[in-house]
């Protein structure tokens, strides 16, 4: 029972990171109708920037800020320089370009920083606190959870309460009409990418110290998990991404806890296939049928 509780709490905190990652995927999907397969690699790149700043300045918070800023810049850059120019004639074009970017980013990281694991500093204790004799969350887990909650809340505010959010939503739903109403749709697309990459950067900073370690490939599996989370929630639904992330985090925590860490990739695949084959629009899909 104690173990179950521990795994549940652990699942919630890793699930929060997956939720943030899935949210980043959903942001780009809604803005551009494409899955950013480079999301993981981009997050690793910004995590390198972040932790380089941490070790240079000794301040975790400066590093976190640097990573998020780097995410904004990288996201905007990728959209402006690459994704904008992918032809629409081949429906696979954007996936292929993103995968090329994955190789490129990982190679550059390997050349600049080396392929070894690098230690990462964390601002909070990663040992679990014991509450009433039961090992519960660590302070670091609480920080992760809190950070993701704040980000989700900020994004919700941005999209529902600000005119930038309204512009972004309108551009995603009806680009042509939005242009006729004076919205600079292509700029909104860039903003969407920047925002998504910044969220991804934050998620990367949060997830790297939790057992992954900083490494060019640190996010390979995390990306697949986040994709699964986004699919579970439905690629169109930001709220679904959050719920999907938590759900996948929990399931994987139980699987890892009871069956061993090696089974994780298998569990991810099974989960992904199950959702896609049974409920292709995601668990929270509305009545509108979507083409998968």
């Amino acid at each position: 029972m104690d173990r179950f509780l521990f795994l549940t709490l652990d699942g919630v905190s890793t699930g929060a990171v997956y939720a943030a990652f899935a949210l980043a995927l959903v942001l780009i999907w809604r803005a551009a109708r494409l899955v950013n397969f480079a999301q993981g690699a981009m997050a690793v790149a910004t995590a390198y920037v972040g932790y380089a700043v941490v070790s240079a300045t000794g301040s975790y918070w400066l590093g976190l800020g640097a990573a998020v800023l780097a995410g904004l810049a990288l996201g905007a850059l990728v959209e402006r320089v690459l994704m904008r120019f992918v032809g629409h004639a081949n429906p696979l074009g954007d996936v292929i370009v993103a995968l090329g970017l994955v190789l490129l980013i990982q190679a550059v990281l390997g050349m600049v920083f080396g392929n070894e694991y690098r230690p990462t500093a964390v601002p909070f204790d990663t040992d679990a606190l014991t509450v009433g004799g039961i090992a519960a969350m660590s302070p670091y887990d609480l920080w992760v959870l809190g950070a993701v909650v704040v980000v989700v809340a900020l994004l919700a505010l941005l999209f529902t309460r600000t005119s930038l959010g309204l512009r972004m939503r309108a551009s995603a739903f009806a680009p042509e009409v939005s242009r006729l109403l004076g919205v600079q749709v292509s700029r909104m697309l860039t903003v969407g990418w920047a925002l998504a990459a910044a969220v991804g950067a934050l998620a990367g900073m949060l997830v790297v110290p939790t057992g992954l370690g900083l490494h060019p490939h640190a996010m390979d599996l995390v990306f697949v998990i986040a994709f699964t989370a986004a699919v579970v929630g439905g690629l169109d639904s930001p709220a679904g991404a959050v719920v999907g992330g938590l759900l996948v985090g929990l399931i994987l925590s139980y699987v890892t806890g009871y069956l061993g860490p090696d089974t994780t990739p298998l569990a991810v695949l099974v989960l992904l296939l199950a959702v896609l084959l049974v409920r292709p629009g995601g668990l929270f899909s509305g009545p509108r049928a979507r083409h998968v």
């Binding site: 899955v35 397969f37 996936v95 990306f223 697949v224 699964t228 699919v231 991810v268 695949l269 992904l272």
Partner: peptide, 8 residues
């Protein structure tokens, strides 16, 4: 979706 599944 297919790309994601096969990536997994």
């Amino acid at each position: 979706y297919l790309a994601g599944v096969t990536l997994a």
